[in-house]
Computed example of a mutant assay.
Amino acid sequence: MNLRQPARRPPKRAGRFQPAAERPRAIPELLLITLLFLVYKLGRLAANGRVTEAFSNARDVWHFERWAGLPSETSVQHGLLHSETLVHAANCYYAYVHFPATVAFLLWMYLRRPTHYRWVRWVIVALTSAGLALHLLVPLAPPRMLDRTGLIDTGARFGPAVYGAPQTDTVANQYAAMPSLHIGWALIVAIGLIVTTRTRWRWLWLAHPLLTISVVVSTANHYWLDGIVVAVLLAIVLFALRPPAPAAPADEPAEAPASAAEPAGAGTAVAVAGAAAEPAPEPAGPAAGRSGTRPATG
């Protein structure tokens, strides 16, 4: 009877995509995201028309930052204005990286990390909803609109420009600076990629939110406080919505328990059976073949 443990199958390597069963269906997911985005845009436009309140809040934010000792946004922008190439690059980053980078991140999560995709999707929805509530409650003119700050609208001056005249802009609500979803979404992208990857270089994704912070401040589209508020909101959201537990790596399968690998006591039974089947050793020396043993002498 062969009681040897069967050979263990070789570990499976991680495939290019995770099982489709864990991935939400594409069409309903696309419709859901489109609907949520339209609700957000309509909600931002609903806050239009509160110009006086937006400028009053902007002056309050500016004075609070100076009282709190935060660096002046003006000094940051002056450092950028030394190079027209840097100004143009910052404007391009503000205009063309924010939304496409977030979409690309969601697509990658959907295809490669479907289990974490659901978590990331709801984190974005929760943070954006909280941001929309603040946009409605606290309309805020961006620093580029405050004359007393000495800041300029780098997009309108050097291009490319994202916004038109605020009086005629029917696409975006320019009085919704608080909080900065540019910074919030960039933080989600970086955190999501750090959580779901294992490469030693994953921490470099923090460069995206750091660049975003420097860009939105130096182009006078946001105050420091806009970034601080969105970071606090995101911390609350991440505390409430924890990421799913990481699965065991595909190339390191968990060790099977002893009860599953072989029956309890099987090793002992095999050892006893082997000992019984093994012939007794023949006596060596001149006494070989005698039927008795010589009594011990003192």
Rank of each mutant, 00 (worst) to 15 (best):
L36V: 10
P10H: 06
V189N: 06
A95I: 01
H78L: 14
P28T: 09
N2G: 07
R202E: 07
R8Y: 02
P253M: 09
E282N: 07
V51Q: 04
G150C: 08
T74L: 12
L45P: 04
G227E: 02
W108D: 02
P257G: 07
L45F: 05
S180L: 07
R290F: 14
H182T: 10
P249Q: 13
Y110K: 08
P10Q: 14
A104D: 06
R294I: 12
E22R: 15
G79F: 08
I194L: 12
A176R: 04
Y110A: 04
I152R: 11
V237K: 09
L36K: 03
P71V: 09
A58Q: 01
I213G: 05
P71A: 12
A47E: 12
G265Y: 11
L151E: 02
T219W: 00
P142S: 09
P166W: 11
R200C: 07
V229M: 05
T102K: 02
P160S: 08
H222G: 05
A250Q: 13
L137A: 15
R44W: 02
V138D: 01
N173Y: 04
I33T: 13
M109V: 04
V237D: 02
A220E: 01
E262K: 11
L238W: 08
T268A: 15
L193M: 14
F239R: 15
A231C: 14
A95C: 07
L211A: 15
V39S: 10
G285W: 11
L3H: 13
R112N: 07
P100L: 12
V51S: 02
A284I: 12
R242V: 13
L107K: 00
Y117M: 10
A176Q: 00
P246T: 11
A271V: 11
H78C: 03
G184V: 06
